[in-house]
Computed example of a mutant assay.
Amino acid sequence: MKGYDPHEARDLFPADQWEKATASQPNGDQCVEWNFGTPGRVGLRDSNHPDGPVLVFDEAEWSAFQEAVKAEQTRQA
């Protein structure tokens, strides 16, 4: 999504609505968090750096991102 600064994008999302990927727990808490708290946007950040940059996706970008991750997981299996 264009038009945002990744270092200030965390202010676009409610602080209490970040969710951590439960599947990442066995990996020593090296995981991402997402936030669906802003209509039409999805925030994605490193759970170890909650004050760091946030990637912002619109709905179409989020779907494409998820499909790419799934395709990579399938390719590596």
Rank of each mutant, 00 (worst) to 15 (best):
G3D: 03
K70S: 03
G28M: 09
D46Q: 10
Q66N: 09
L44Y: 07
D11H: 15
V42A: 05
A60S: 11
G43L: 04
F36Y: 13
E72F: 00
A21H: 05
E8L: 15
K2N: 10
L44S: 03
E59P: 00
N27F: 13
F13H: 14
D5M: 04
L44A: 05
G3Q: 09
R45M: 09
Q30H: 14
G37V: 12
D5T: 06
R41M: 03
L44I: 14
R75Q: 07
R75H: 09
F57K: 04
D51S: 12
T38A: 12
H49W: 01
Q30M: 14
D29M: 15
D5I: 13
H7E: 01
T22K: 11
T38Y: 00
S47H: 09
H7W: 04
K2T: 14
G28S: 10
Q17E: 15
A77P: 00
H7K: 06
Q66W: 04
Q66M: 09
E59L: 05
E19G: 04
D58G: 05
E61G: 13
E8K: 15
E67N: 07
L55V: 02
S63M: 09
V56P: 00
M1I: 10
T22N: 08
A15W: 02
A23R: 13
K20E: 01
D51L: 09
G3T: 03
W34V: 15
A23D: 03
P26M: 10
E61L: 07
E61C: 03
M1K: 10
V54G: 08
D29Y: 15
G43S: 01
Q25S: 08
V32W: 07
A77F: 10
K70H: 11
N48S: 07
T38P: 00
P50V: 07
N35D: 05
D16P: 00
V54W: 06
D11Y: 13
G40V: 04
E8D: 12
N48H: 10
P6D: 10
S24T: 15
E59R: 14
E8V: 14
V32L: 13
E19N: 07
G37D: 10
F65T: 01
F57M: 01
Q25P: 00
